[in-house]
Each structure stands twice: as structure tokens, then as C-alpha cells.
Design a protein around this nucleic acid. Structure first.
Length: 765
DNA sequence: ACCAATAGATTTTTT
DNA sequence: ATCTATTGGT
């Protein structure tokens, strides 16, 4: 026990050894949050206050859950696999599997990922002849997910206009379809669980009695539904330890509600709020800058990071004339850092939006610097893997129409659009699944589809005694997916991925502790299951016991495929520069960090100005970016940038102005004010940001887009000018020459005007 | 059934 | 500029 608490600072120590009451830990960046969380669990167990089965720890990502398990295993000789440590969705899935009957779900219910959900909505729109221009599928999906996050079923959605009425109706059809198919989407995993616990008192009380400690990581990222779930699991007795950092809340756009932190303190009568402000990551200049920047936000719980490390290097700021030059400058700096002994994988190149990676990649590639881009397609999202999974899904649950549609004609087996339509019509008429509708079909479509159904049934029959990896292998053969891709020109990678799916299945079996020879299609003890579940109904079978008896390896693997889509990294190489968005960098740290594209309109992003508190969220994002760096931090922006095939002229980001002078060093001379800066008043608040300081213009000469054009009279793009009537503005575009010369000028007060330079009286400022 | 052309949209992302 | 999804033609 002594060594568990050894080396903790006073705040960490206090957090780890808190009494069994609910508490909020405000954990700053790099303050040892994960360490506190895992040590707290270990300490609770080691001091005998709780058994491993009596606590639950919730995270957002599988990566975080795995790390917690790994660290815990290193601290205590316990089996962490059986513990309730997992993601919100993973743990809800566990509860729903165990209590599928109470939740009105089939035992083999399957999970729709975002792609599947979108295609399901598209299908519904088409089938009901709803104009998808008026109701874009993405909007419908957003509507459905938001409703679910508010805990609303279709019938409960409050509608006030024809549009929302129609949306609610689509939601209703979608709900029915999912239920009939035996599928649930991500939000549904949460909502179903919340409804199950809310309506089933014995079940609720069972889990409330079981979990005496609940620990929640990244609490600032919870949405309303997730918070409700925590409340239901906790009841009035459990001690909930919420760990989070309101300054790192960057997911409001997907429903995260920082307000949950305040609600938590109130509703759980939190007596203890502990701040972890000692930072173990960054040098002083970096940390001071981060503190200064974030102090510009108004809605904060309040926190200031400190470090024992020295000031270290100042932050370098570079102004480049173009995005290409910015990238070129980075290449030089990177070479320099490498010479200083910093390894490439300890250097992160961060950007606000993915589109920015292209220019950087190009420069790195030309300079022969190996790099790795995060955020590509993940393993289980690849088309060929989705196809293989669809076959497996049909074997486990043939009524999954999404899976059926994906592969009924892939590889092609002569089922045309006509046949598919007839099948869908028939299914709709009878209110049954596509699979079940096949026997109703006559003619050519009937026979080809019949053959497909037979294929699925034969695969099922043939593989019923096979262990999972062999089943997967066999299905790849029977489906002819492998042969199909072998005959395709560019199919080699896909064949390789499909073969990797077999390995993934083998790995899964061993990691989940299934017997190596357990038949994939069968639950371990299906007979016992009926006896227990169909008991008098009063007895609660705990999820652990239920799952041990009824989860088949295949069902478990399919859940795994949906809930854990695999690595987010495109290429794997040992020593490569790390390229990623600021969002994906959250939780990571590097010796050296470059934050690029620090321009108004890009970072902060122009769209953020329209959102409530959008600029504050962008600032938190910048805060996250800065606090990724251990020793060296480089910030850069470009005067011109290629975006959407057009050149944009941006001003430097307001965030650069919020960094204290003593922490930064400009590598490029700063021009007076800086040429695009709107008058001070326009900068002060969130709401006044109009996006006017950032605009788009066609290049005067497309072949010289990295040069800022200047005309003979000394007018140039970016020049500040003053007009007697319009006030001050900035030239954003010049056209023509001599007597026919016009300037496009963005005036701070009045917006864009086109003026003839020979007529208008303009003053250079 | 397959390919080419065209239209539309490009902030951030996990499950 | 580039990618995707859909459409229309062969």
C-alpha cells in the first residue's frame, strides 16, 4: 500500500485516498489524471474497501479503457478483464446483452455504425418517397441522434412545424425498422440502457447495490444521456468520482455538455472538489502561455497550471507568405530538431482541419521525411472488411437488412436494381425482413436471391462447430470475397486486409478468454441460459453470470467490430513525424509540437463564430494544442492559403495576440499592427466576430499564387487603406492595370466594395 | 453491370 | 483541389 501512494503529490494523494463519497477532480493537462484514476482503483481494492467486481470505471475511448486496465494490472495482481472497465457504449452493450429480453432486444442484436445508420436513413427516405433535398440524410441522422441524446423517442419529440413533424415521423419509421432488423445504433445503446434501468426497478437496484464506486474519465465530454446513465447506475449511495477538465472540453459539437460538471457537483452533493494543477509535462514558457490564453475564457471552473520545470525555450512564431512556405519552414525546423537529437515520433504537426495536411505532407515527402497521418479509415471501416462482417452478421442475425443489402449482390451475383427493388417492396408489404421476403419472390430475382439465402444458410450449417477464426476463414471462401478481390487489379491490399480479419478473430478469441475450440455460433452453455433467464422473473441474473452463459463468440466478435473500429492510424512506421488534427492530439504529448495555420477563419474556424460560445471552444482547442508540448513549441500562420481550390487571404489568429510577449519569440518581423487586424472593438467578444477579417478571392495570377501581387502604383493585396466615406479596409484583390485598375476592398464597417483606383481617393495607412 | 461524367460539399470525432 | 455520391450512357 505504501508504494501505491508513493510519489504522489499532495493533491493527487488527496484524490486517490478520498473517502467513499462523490467527488470532482479537476485535472489539468499533464497533471497525472490517469495515474490518479488507476491508483484510486488500486487503492480502493488493496485497502479492502471494495472488491474488483464492486466498481465500474467508464471512459470514452477503448484506448483509454485499455490503458487503465494495463496500468491497473501492473499495480495489482488481479484479472482486470472481468472488471467493469470500459467505454460508455461497451458497458451499455454488456448490460443490454445480459438483459436483452428485458430490453426487448433479440439475443443477437447487432450494432449499426455511423455508416450503416446513414444508409439505413437513406433507404427509409427512398422507400417512403421523401424528398432527400428537403430532408438531407445527414440532417435526419443528426435529428435522430440528438433526440436520442435528449432521451426522446419519436412519439415524444415535440414538433412545432411541418419540417420537424416530418423528421419525427422519419425517426419513428427508423425506430421500427431498427427494432424489426434487430439492430441498434450507438445512441440507442445508451438510450435503451437508460430506459431499461429507469423502468426496471429490481434491475436498477441490483446494479446500484453492486457498484459502490463509479469512476468517470473525461467527464467534461459526457452528453446528457451519458450523465443520466451514470445517475441511474449510481443511485443515491454509490460514490462517483468524476475526473475532467472544463478547459479541455472540445466536443460540444457532438453533444458534450460541460455543464454536466456543475450539475454533478450539485446533484451528487459534492463536498470535495480537488484541483490537480501541478503539470509534469511542459516547460514554463509553454505552460504560462497556455494559462494566459485560457484566461480569456469567461465560463471556467478556474484552474492554473504550474510546473517545477524551468522556463525552457520560448515559443517560436513564424509568419509565412503562403501555406507552402509555412510547410517548407517546418521542414527546416524539423531537420534542426532532429539534429538536436529529438526523434521524429516525438514531433507532432498539428492542424485545425484535415485539409491542411496535404501541403504539409507534400513538403515532408519532397524532403524525404517519414511521417504518419492519424485519422484515416480504420480497420473495421474498410469496405472489404465491412463486406465480410456483413456476411458474418447475416449468419448471426439474418434479419439485419443493412447487412443483407450490403452483400446480397457483392460480389455480383446477378441481382440487379430491379430485383432489389422488388425484394424491398415485398418485404415492406409483409412487414418482414428482406431475408424473410425472399421466398415470396418469383422469377429470376427469386432464384438468384434464393441462391444467396441458401449460401448464408449453408455457411451457417457448415461452420456451426468451427471456432471463430476458422469460421471467418471459411466465410471468406464461401462468399468468394477473397477470389473477387484477387481478380481485381488493385485488390492486393484488400485481400491482405481480409486475411488480417482472420488474425483479428484469433486475437479476439484469446484476448476475450474464449476457449480456442469453442464453436463460434454457440453460446457457451445455451441450455443453462434458458433455465436461468426464464426463472420466476423475480430473480435478477447479474450481467456477468448471464454473459458467461449466453454470449456466442461470433456475437461478441461482431460487437467488438462495431464498437472498436481499430487503429486510427494510416501507415505504421517506427520513427515518423506525427501528423494529426488538434482534436486527435488530445491526450497525447510530444517533445516538440508545431501548431500550424493559426489564422482567423481557420483557427479559430470561421464556422465557430456562428455557434454559441464557439470562440471559447476554439480557444480551449488551442489550449489543448499548446499543452501537448513538452519542450518545444512552434506556431505558424500563412498570409495566403489554398483552400477549396481558391486562395484565401487570412489575418493571423487572435490567439497569437493572447500569448504573453515574454513567452514568445517572433521569427519573422511583425508588421506594425498586422495587416488585416480589424479594429480592436471587433475583437473583444465572441459575438462581434463576423468573419469579416477573413475572405476569399480569386488569384490575380493563378500561376503565382504564393506571391502577393503588387501593381505599379504600389497597391498590393493586404494593404490597409482608408476611404473618405467607407473608412478603413484592406485590399483583397487587384485587377486590371493602368487606366482600368480596380481594387476589391474589404472595409471593416461596410464589407466588400470594388473601387476603381483611378477614381476612388484612397489613402495608404 | 460497369464506367465515365457531373454535381455537391468540404471543422473538429468516438462509439 | 479533391473527394464522394449519384446519374446517365454504353
Amino acid at each position: 500500500m505504501q508504494n501505491l501512494l508513493h510519489n504522489l503529490n499532495p493533491e493527487q494523494h488527496a484524490a486517490v485516498t478520498l473517502p467513499a463519497e462523490s467527488a470532482l477532480i479537476l485535472a489539468g493537462a499533464g497533471s497525472g489524471k490517469t495515474r490518479v484514476l488507476t491508483t484510486r482503483i488500486a487503492w480502493l481494492i488493496q485497502t479492502g474497501q471494495i472488491s474488483p467486481s464492486g466498481l465500474m470505471a467508464v471512459t470514452f475511448t477503448n484506448k483509454a479503457a485499455k490503458e487503465m486496465q494495463a496500468r491497473l494490472s501492473a499495480m495489482l495482481p488481479i484479472n482486470t478483464r472481468s472488471m467493469w472497465i470500459g467505454t460508455f457504449h461497451g458497458l451499455c452493450n454488456r448490460l443490454l446483452r445480459a438483459h436483452h429480453k428485458d430490453a426487448s432486444l433479440p439475443q443477437t442484436f447487432q450494432i449499426l455504425d455511423s455508416q450503416d445508420q446513414l444508409s439505413m436513413v437513406k433507404r427509409i427516405l427512398k422507400a417512403n418517397q421523401i424528398d432527400d433535398d428537403k430532408y438531407p440524410p445527414r440532417t435526419v441522422v443528426y435529428f435522430i441522434n440528438s433526440a436520442k441524446e435528449q432521451g426522446l423517442r419519436a412519439a415524444k419529440v415535440v414538433t412545432h412545424d411541418p419540417i420537424s413533424r416530418q423528421l419525427a415521423e422519419i425517426y419513428g419509421i427508423y425506430e421500427q425498422q431498427c427494432q424489426r432488423d434487430g439492430v441498434v445504433d450507438f445512441a440507442e445503446l445508451l438510450l435503451r440502457t437508460v430506459e431499461l434501468l429507469a423502468s426496471n426497478q429490481p434491475l436498477r437496484e441490483h446494479y446500484q447495490a453492486r457498484f459502490k464506486h463509479i469512476l468517470v474519465d473525461e467527464f467534461q465530454d459526457t452528453n446528457d444521456l451519458q450523465y443520466r446513465w451514470i445517475k441511474l447506475m449510481a443511485g443515491s449511495k454509490a460514490a462517483v468520482l468524476a475526473v475532467g477538465d472544463d478547459d479541455q472540453s472540445i466536443y460540444a459539437f457532438r453533444g458534450a455538455n460541460v455543464g454536466n460538471m456543475a450539475s454533478f457537483e450539485r446533484e451528487f452533493q459534492v463536498q470535495n472538489r480537488i484541483k490537480l494543477e501541478q503539470n509534469y509535462r511542459s516547460h514554463g514558457h509553454i505552460l504560462d502561455s497556455a494559462n494566459a490564453l485560457i484566461s480569456n475564457n469567461t465560463e471556467r471552473l478556474g484552474k492554473n497550471l504550474r510546473t517545477d520545470a524551468g522556463l525552457g525555450e520560448v515559443i517560436r512564431i513564424q509568419e509565412a507568405s503562403s501555406d507552402r512556405e509555412e510547410a517548407q519552414w517546418m521542414v527546416e525546423q524539423i531537420k534542426d530538431l532532429t539534429r538536436q537529437g529529438i526523434s521524429s515520433d516525438q514531433i507532432a504537426l498539428l492542424y485545425r482541419s484535415n485539409a491542411q495536411s496535404r501541403v504539409i505532407e507534400h513538403a515532408l515527402f519532397s524532403a524525404n521525411l517519414p511521417y504518419r497521418v492519424y485519422g484515416g479509415l480504420r480497420f473495421f471501416e474498410r469496405a472489404e472488411i465491412k463486406h465480410a462482417i456483413a456476411y458474418l452478421q447475416l449468419m448471426d442475425n439474418p434479419h439485419n437488412d443493412s447487412a443483407f443489402l450490403r452483400v446480397m449482390n457483392f460480389p455480383t451475383r446477378g441481382i440487379g436494381a430491379k430485383g432489389q427493388e422488388t425484394l424491398q417492396d415485398t418485404a415492406r408489404q409483409h412487414g418482414i425482413s428482406l431475408y424473410a421476403a425472399v421466398p415470396y419472390l418469383a422469377g429470376k430475382a427469386g432464384s438468384t436471391l434464393g441462391a444467396f439465402v441458401k449460401l448464408i444458410e449453408a455457411a451457417r450449417f457448415e461452420t456451426q462447430m468451427l471456432p471463430l477464426p476458422e469460421l471467418v476463414q471459411r466465410v471468406l471462401e464461401l462468399s468468394t470475397l477473397i477470389t473477387h478481390y484477387q481478380s481485381e487489379k488493385e485488390g492486393a491490399d484488400r485481400v491482405e486486409n481480409l486475411e488480417q480479419l482472420v488474425s483479428a478473430a484469433a486475437l479476439f478469441i484469446s484476448e476475450e478468454g474464449f476457449a480456442n475450440d469453442a464453436p463460434a455460433l454457440m453460446g457457451p452453455a445455451s441450455t443453462v441460459q434458458t433455465a436461468l433467464v426464464q426463472g420466476d422473473g423475480m430473480e435478477i441474473m447479474d450481467a456477468d453470470a448471464a454473459l458467461a452463459t449466453l454470449m456466442s463468440p461470433l456475437s461478441a466478435f461482431l460487437s467488438h467490430a462495431s464498437l472498436e473500429a481499430g487503429d486510427n492510424q494510416a501507415q505504421v512506421g517506427q520513427d515518423a513525424l506525427q501528423l494529426m488534427t488538434v482534436h486527435s492530439a488530445k491526450g497525447l504529448e510530444f517533445d516538440a509540437v508545431f501548431i500550424t495555420g493559426l489564422e482567423e477563419g481557420l483557427f479559430p474556424h470561421e464556422n465557430s463564430a456562428k455557434e454559441t460560445n464557439g470562440i471559447e471552444e476554439e480557444r480551449r482547442l488551442m489550449y489543448v494544442a499548446i499543452t501537448r508540448a513538452r519542450q518545444r513549441l512552434f506556431l505558424s500562420f500563412a498570409q495566403t492559403r489554398m483552400l477549396h481550390g481558391q486562395i484565401r487571404y487570412n489575418t493571423k489568429s487572435r490567439f497569437l495576440n493572447e500569448l504573453p510577449d515574454e513567452n514568445v519569440k517572433w521569427l519573422t518581423p511583425q508588421i506594425k499592427q498586422n495587416w488585416f487586424a480589424p479594429p480592436k472593438s471587433a475583437w473583444d467578444s465572441d459575438t462581434s466576430y463576423s468573419g469579416n477579417s477573413s475572405f476569399q478571392a480569386k488569384p490575380v495570377n493563378p500561376s503565382h499564387h504564393s506571391i502577393i501581387p503588387t501593381n505599379a502604383d504600389g497597391w498590393r493585396i493586404g494593404l490597409s487603406v482608408k476611404h473618405a466615406k467607407f473608412g478603413e479596409g484592406i485590399i483583397i484583390k487587384l485587377e486590371g492595370s493602368g487606366t482600368n485598375c480596380r481594387a476589391h476592398i474589404q472595409f471593416y464597417k461596410l464589407g466588400l466594395k470594388v473601387l476603381d483606383l483611378n477614381i476612388a481617393k484612397l489613402e495608404k495607412v
